[in-house]
């Protein structure tokens, strides 16, 4: 009980959470701008009566019920609130508005709401409960005369974000039950995914030989092992506090950093090879949460 309460207690500098706020904002703004730029706003979020693909929507969604064609209202609300929390002007209120509007867009057109949208909403609610607007924000500039005042905020939201990342990666790993992810399927999953017309950026002809195929087999196995073992990011910093040789070794070498670095490589690799839109950038936007602003370690280190 005491350990549990200690995990969630304490304050820390606000930079990590502020950086997550800014990067999440930039990621969703870029996605919403793309949506408008390629002309997908009306088709994706308008009703069929207005030329879109949403045939029947829910009348109990305020933003949707307010307009005969809800696409522009949903989009405008999300853009305005994302702009506000990205620059850090009324961050908490803006995050709440964005979270509610995004949730309504998900109910309005469920098929278009992808895993990354849900993950970012989870993060948005955590950020809304945090002090992420205390620095690196317009509010801070107006209040203290500087963009980056040295402010301490509760540390628990950042630790909760770390836990969210761990749960996400770990359960994504254990749910990869398709045989092509496994040794019995020759670790061929990435080879097959890169040949999927819907998501690949280019058919990987470079993999149509034993060496190329082996590289992708290695990538498949590494992805699976990395996801299965991602809880290291939580466990290693906790064990590093133990006054044992093992604890001292973990404190000295901080192996969890390798998992974080692999994550960056993994998402940049996805961005380079797969056309998944917001996904890799939305994921990387959450990575500053893995940075303990006291510079001690990543993960759920208590104070």
């Amino acid at each position: 009980m005491k350990t549990w309460l200690r995990w969630w207690s304490g304050d820390e500098p606000a930079q990590s959470l502020a950086l997550v706020r800014v990067l999440v904002g930039l990621a969703v703004l870029s996605d919403l701008a793309t949506m408008a730029w390629v002309g997908a706003l009306g088709p994706a979020w308008s009703l069929t009566t207005s030329g879109g693909i949403v045939d029947a929507t829910r009348k109990d969604l305020p933003l949707v019920a307010m307009a005969s064609d809800p696409a522009l209202l949903l989009w405008g609300t999300m853009v305005a609130s994302a702009l506000a929390f990205t620059v850090g002007w009324g961050s908490r209120a803006a995050l709440v508005v964005f979270g509610l509007a995004s949730a309504q867009s998900a109910l309005h057109y469920p098929m278009g709401d992808r895993a990354i949208d849900m993950l970012l909403r989870n993060a948005i609610w955590i950020l809304a409960a945090s002090g992420c607007g205390a620095t690196l924000s317009l509010s801070a500039r107006l209040r203290s005369g500087t963009w980056m005042p040295a402010v301490e905020v509760p540390a628990w939201p950042r630790r909760l974000l770390v836990l969210q990342l761990v749960v996400m990666y770990f359960t994504a790993g254990v749910q990869k039950f398709g045989l092509l992810w496994m040794p019995m399927g020759d670790f061929a999953a990435l080879y097959v995914i890169l040949h999927d017309w819907g998501v690949t950026r280019a058919i990987p002809t470079w993999a149509h030989n034993p060496v190329g195929f082996f590289v992708l087999q290695l990538g498949t196995a590494s992805t699976l092992i990395w996801q299965w073992t991602y809880p290291v990011v939580l466990v290693a910093p906790a064990l590093a506090r133990q006054p044992t040789p093992w604890g001292r070794w973990l404190a000295r070498w901080r192996p969890e950093r390798a998992w974080v670095a692999l994550g960056v490589v993994f998402h940049l690799g996805i961005a380079a090879t797969l056309d998944l839109g917001l996904f890799p950038w939305g994921m990387l936007a959450l990575y500053p949460a893995l940075w303990d602003p006291r510079g001690q370690a990543t993960g759920l280190r208590g104070t």
């Binding site: 979270g99 509610l100 995004s102 949730a103 309504q104 998900a106 109910l107 709401d113 895993a115 949208d117 849900m118 909403r121 989870n122 609610w125 749960v167 996400m168 359960t171 994504a172 749910q175 990869k176 039950f177 398709g178 092509l180 992810w181 061929a188 999953a189 990435l190 097959v192 995914i193 040949h195 999927d196 017309w197 819907g198």
Partner: peptide, 21 residues
């Protein structure tokens, strides 16, 4: 539903070897 939160992370759980174009 109101908050739009959840934890379903079956990301590429099955690789599709008959993909549509």
């Amino acid at each position: 539903e109101l908050l739009g939160v959840g934890q379903g992370w079956g990301l590429f759980a099955q690789a599709d070897d008959v993909p549509g174009r």
